[in-house]
Computed example of a mutant assay.
Amino acid sequence: MQAGIAVRLGIASLLALGAANADTPSAQADYARFCSGCHGATFSISTRAEGEARSRQEIAAVIRGGNTQRGMPAFGGQIPDARIRALAEWLDTQATNGASLGATIAAETLDQVRSSGFVLMRAAESSIPYVGYFGERSSLCYPNVDLTGVRSIELNYAKGSDEAGRYAVLVGDGIGKARRNLGEQRTKPTGGWETFARHRIGLAEELSGRHELCFYGVEGG
């Protein structure tokens, strides 16, 4: 299984969740095309640096008009304004310290030290990054996720085979403490290894506060 473009947390319906972040794939593609050459393949808090306190409107203004003091070009003539706003929103989400209810976590922002059995990849046509080769005994872990009020998780993944597969959602509270299994689900073929589809899994209990969120390959891929 290829763990897709994003891991989405939510409590609303699938339709509402999809509408809330409909521009995420195009924003990631714009980042890969226009920004990654200077800011790195994966945007994070560390690459945001002095922009920590900027609002989304200010981020959009910098993308639109550039920053001559730092050598950043203006992209207002290359990227439509609606996409600039979507890109600014996505950058702000990536730089926020921890995700919460309704947020989207980019799959490739996983904790690489605490995760195992995966390969960071890019889609052939769109260059959108994703986590590939997730299979049995693989684990993808995301730290500092606010799970307050979250009762389900929507995972965007691709699977190109009919092989039986199953993954579990695990929640941990720190190194040295056992992770809890909050639910398991079988994976389904999506029509191709880069044909992503959203699948929702309900959680066995409602949590509060910040936790480490992990996806563990129980069997197959």
Rank of each mutant, 00 (worst) to 15 (best):
A178K: 13
A16Q: 15
E125V: 14
A204R: 12
S126R: 04
G4D: 04
S100A: 13
W90Q: 10
G174A: 02
G10F: 06
A16T: 11
V218R: 03
M1G: 09
I79A: 01
L203H: 03
C141M: 14
Y157Q: 07
H39N: 03
I5P: 07
R64Y: 08
A82L: 06
S36L: 07
R200F: 02
D162P: 00
F75M: 06
V131C: 04
A22W: 12
T24D: 14
R70E: 07
G10L: 05
V169Q: 01
R83N: 14
N97A: 15
A124N: 11
I153G: 03
Y167F: 15
N67Y: 13
F34R: 03
R122W: 03
A178S: 12
E52Q: 12
E205S: 11
L9K: 03
L170A: 09
L17P: 01
G221M: 12
S127A: 13
V171A: 00
L101D: 04
A60Q: 13
C38T: 12
Y142S: 06
Q57E: 15
Y167M: 15
A95Q: 02
L203M: 06
A158G: 00
S36R: 12
A61P: 00
R180L: 09
R210P: 01
I5C: 00
A82V: 14
R198L: 11
R83Y: 02
D162W: 05
R210S: 07
G77Q: 09
G102A: 05
K188C: 00
A27C: 09
R83W: 08
A32P: 05
Q57K: 12
N144T: 08
N21E: 09
V218L: 14
A107E: 02
G172I: 09
R8K: 13
S46E: 14
N156W: 10
I105Q: 00
S138W: 11
N156G: 03
T42H: 09
A103V: 00
L120R: 14
Y167I: 10
T47N: 12
G102H: 03
F75R: 08
N181I: 03
L91K: 02
A29Q: 15
G66N: 05
G221W: 11
C214R: 10
E184I: 04
A27E: 07
N97I: 12
G98N: 08
R70Q: 14
I84H: 01
E212K: 07
R70S: 11
R180G: 02
A107R: 00
M72R: 01
I45Y: 08
D81T: 11
F43S: 05
V171L: 01
A53C: 00
V62H: 06
D146M: 03
A29P: 01
T93H: 03
R180Y: 07
L17S: 11
T190G: 05
S115T: 13
W193H: 08
S208N: 07
L17F: 03
L101V: 06
Q112L: 12
S115V: 12
Y133K: 07
R166H: 03
A123Q: 13
I175A: 15
L87I: 00
S161Y: 04
C214A: 11
D81E: 15
G37K: 13
A103E: 01
V145Y: 00
